[in-house]
Design a binder for these strands. Structure first.
Length: 226
DNA sequence: AACTTATCCAACCGCCGCTAC
DNA sequence: AGTAGCGGCGGTTGGATAAGT
């Protein structure tokens, strides 16, 4: 193992400590539990192994599909991915990815590169933007962190009309790029998930929703129409 | 049966962002 | 404004086990 394995006795001490004092305050846990472990080890042991409702064993087919889909959208943000898989921990997902999926998907991506050579690139064109659009583009978002390439150009690929398209934009966020292409206005109502309207109106609050949800929903939208 | 290689996964490490002072 | 302490995260390590020769 990567370190010193936990004994049953240590597990019991940690469980009793958490039951008595609750989660959090990890810096105090080693002392309170009488464990010769650092705060991080205690937290990790609890989160990955001792916490109730942790699902063990093989990943179901649906779970694997979800991991692949979410990884495509979120990258190596294991805690976010695990958050959408009840009972799975970030460590589990990460290990599963590293052991089972990364090699498999690398091979598939190599094949995909051959197929997607014909992707049509739509470059954003200057155009008059209405007042609502101005409002939208003024919304400051962290999206560029997710979709921005090293070149500083934001891009997004999607499928429509049986064809793959790629949007590229020098703009700060992909949303204004979509808006300028006139795509956002065409989105069906059910795509406009909770919080979307608030964002459009400039009332967006990162505590109510985040851009990962937007990207995930866009992907599901693509799946539905492709 | 003995040895080597590959795979799995629990645990550790270092970094980052947030908060309190 | 600077800093220390904390929780949280992703990357990496290395021991256990399985599979192959």
């Amino acid at each position: 193992m990567g370190g010193v394995a936990w004994t049953e006795e240590e597990d019991d001490l940690l469980k009793k400590c958490i039951q008595q004092y609750g989660e959090g305050k990890w810096h105090r846990v080693p002392l309170l539990a009488g464990l010769n472990r650092c705060r991080k080890s205690c937290r990790l042991r609890w989160l990955n192994y001792l916490r109730p409702n942790i699902k063990r064993g093989n990943f179901a087919e649906e779970e694997v599909e979800m991991i692949v889909k979410l990884h495509k959208l979120l990258g190596n943000r294991w805690s976010l991915i695990a958050g959408r898989l009840p009972g799975r921990t970030a460590n589990d997902v990460k290990n599963y990815w590293n052991c089972h999926l990364s090699k498999k998907l690398n091979a598939l991506e190599a094949e995909d590169r051959e197929i997607t050579r014909d992707v049509q690139v739509i470059r954003s064109q200057p155009r008059n933007i209405g007042s609502s659009s101005v409002k939208r583009s003024q919304v400051e978002t962290p999206t560029d962190k997710v979709v921005q390439q090293e070149s500083g150009v934001s891009s997004l690929t999607f499928d429509a009309d049986g064809q793959s398209h790629m949007l590229e934009s020098q703009h700060d966020n992909i949303y204004s790029c979509l808006d300028q292409q006139g795509i956002v206005g065409d989105l069906p109502m059910d795509f406009q998930f909770e919080g979307f309207e608030a964002m459009i109106n400039g009332e967006g609050s990162s505590s109510q929703w985040d851009w990962d949800d937007l990207l995930l929903d866009m992907d599901m939208y693509n799946d539905f129409f492709s």
